[in-house]
Design a protein around this nucleic acid. Structure first.
Lengths: 343, 343
DNA sequence: ATGAAAGCGCTAACAG
DNA sequence: CTGTTAGCGCTTTCAT
């Protein structure tokens, strides 16, 4: 790989000049400019990003922490993040914590501030303490899917009103006439799905429905499958199932299929998020859509701002931690919900 | 972020010594060693990866080129790659080409050799010419899913016998008694699914079946859906559908559902790859499994070898380009295939 | 408009 | 065993 100074020599100028034309900085004579450019592609020169990063004191990448890219929501989100990041010339390093705080810390320790100049965190089961350490070392962090707009987490974040999402799902079911509905709640230790469930309960309460069965489950198709079967066995009269996420909702549909129940004829199913698969399942899943792309955009731009300001003021005062709120989740009615069977 | 020399000062030694204890190189007295270690975590020191990369003349990451992480196969593969890469201390940068050769080249240009010391290529619609440029600049490249073990691509690769995969799928259908079977072939410009289709045809021929309908389609659920409907409309007597990939196979199942056909009662469906979703669909998809994790492992280790040897001999002779072949694809019978309807 | 020089944080001989 | 001395490739004042 040719270096900057080789290009300089080839063009009969100094490295500084080459650097200048490449960055379009300080005025350079049009003549030399052309000559340099010619040498650049005569030699097939490419800037060495690591060297540049070192000299500039900043890195060309952003890190995205996810619990597992195997959960199809994350690739979708990652794609949106990548698109947004590219607009500022950043590459994205996706770090799979595998839901393990230790792995997460290892990534953070190594990448933050040296390979990446900013960190985006989704629900990756990270310790807030670790994030604060990163932050205090000067690497901005933003939480991507904070579930409670009214309770800031003490870290920059973009929030989504997931309580509302749960409420919308509940309302939809009730409006269809369901009264016996089971709930499948993602059982993250962090209680990350709690707000959604609360919203769901709020909806029930508003209509005077007091009882409903709940089952906690892993945030996977299989988790939803198991939970749904348990729910249906405990109370066969259930006519609808609400899941705090699409994956378990899909699992619930499979459970129905295996139990010989028609969806939505015998059982309605609703999820939250609106991942790609929700559109592609049969029947297509009714769900409450979260503005994924918007969240990714907000998160990246917030992170960028934090990065810029961190280079600005050395001693940044205790300005209060910023939070962005995404637009509201929206009900998307598809084919998995309908009126309850008239048993 | 504290630097190496700050740690050195704090410990009362020179940077070189600190570097030595950190890398466990040149023998260092146990006393100073402890002192240095103490300073390291007193200051919360973390090595600056970009600086280290520059000094060592090598990068701590590997690039993984994929056409779109939205296709669920890639995250699965990426996860396996990441695991393998971590064992050699590499991070992985996932580059989404979005199936666009220009985007692909842009990534390659910027990342290869500066941020990443090696490139892994899946079916990302890249120009071989671009890959050779990267290689000639000294950055090793390996193709991850070469489909024809017998026709080396002229670039290091790990091959999977996809022709055999197609053949196994065809045989399975024939053994069940199907004679009218439609095929859905991924229509990549690169003809990347051609080998699979050939294998399928070989199987038919071996049993004296001469006719079958084909439909090309995008490598997505929706593509498979559309293709299946077209196939079924063109010939309603088709009793089975073979798809060169799982995603289109899933789409075919949805088409059957919408057409009121039972799977496998009225229509059998088989795919290739065995992605996670194949297990999770209803009915679960019969498919020919490709050893994804093994391929990822082989690809990473081959790439590592190439990297090491590229540092060794400056002028590496025209040693012939290496190829690794994965173990054979295997039929996985699940619930989407059965004997043809006795019409 | 261009060049000279210093330095980013770390590693790697080679001395001592 | 530990210190000295050079860089790695690029950017960036500050001169000229």
């Amino acid at each position: 790989m040719p270096t900057l100074s080789e290009v300089a020599r080839h063009a009969g100028v100094t490295p500084a000049t080459v650097s200048n034309v490449l960055r379009n900085r300080g005025r350079v004579g049009e003549a030399t400019r052309q000559r340099v450019l010619a040498s650049v592609d005569a030699l097939g020169y490419r800037p060495h990003l690591a060297a540049r990063a070192l000299a500039e004191g900043r890195a060309p990448t952003l890190a995205l922490m996810v619990s597992s890219i195997a959960n199809p929501f994350y690739p979708e989100f990652a794609l949106a993040v990548e698109r947004a990041a590219r607009t500022s010339g950043h590459f994205v390093i996706i770090c799979n914590t595998n839901d393990d705080p230790v792995t997460g810390r290892a990534y953070l320790d190594q990448i933050a501030g040296t390979l990446s100049e900013g960190v985006l965190v989704t629900n990756a089961n990270l310790q807030f303490a670790d994030l604060h350490v990163i932050e205090s070392r000067g690497t901005p962090v933003v939480l991507c899917m904070w579930e409670r707009p009214n309770e800031p987490p003490g870290l920059p974040c973009v929030a989504v009103d997931f309580r509302l999402a749960g409420e919308l799902a509940g309302q939809h079911l009730l409006e269809l006439g369901h009264r016996r509905v089971g709930a499948i709640v993602g059982s993250k230790v962090s209680g990350i799905h709690a707000a959604r469930y609360e919203g769901f309960l709020d909806a029930l309460r508003a209509r005077g429905v007091r009882k409903s069965r709940v089952k906690h489950a892993a945030d996977t198709v299989h988790g939803g499958y198991t939970a749904a079967r348990a729910l249906l066995e405990a109370d066969p009269r259930i006519t609808a199932i609400f899941a705090t996420n699409d994956l378990p909702a899909l699992g619930a549909m499979h459970a129905a299929a295996d139990l010989g129940l028609a969806v939505p004829g015998d059982l309605s199913v609703i999820g939250i998020t609106d991942i790609q698969l929700a559109r592609e399942s049969r029947p297509a899943l009714t769900t409450v859509a979260v503005p994924t792309v918007e969240v990714a955009g907000l998160a990246v731009s917030l992170l960028r701002e934090l990065i810029e300001s961190s280079y600005g003021q050395r001693a940044r005062g205790k300005t209060k931690v910023p939070m962005r709120v995404s637009s509201a989740p929206k009900l998307v009615v598809r084919a998995s919900t309908g009126t309850p069977r008239s048993s």
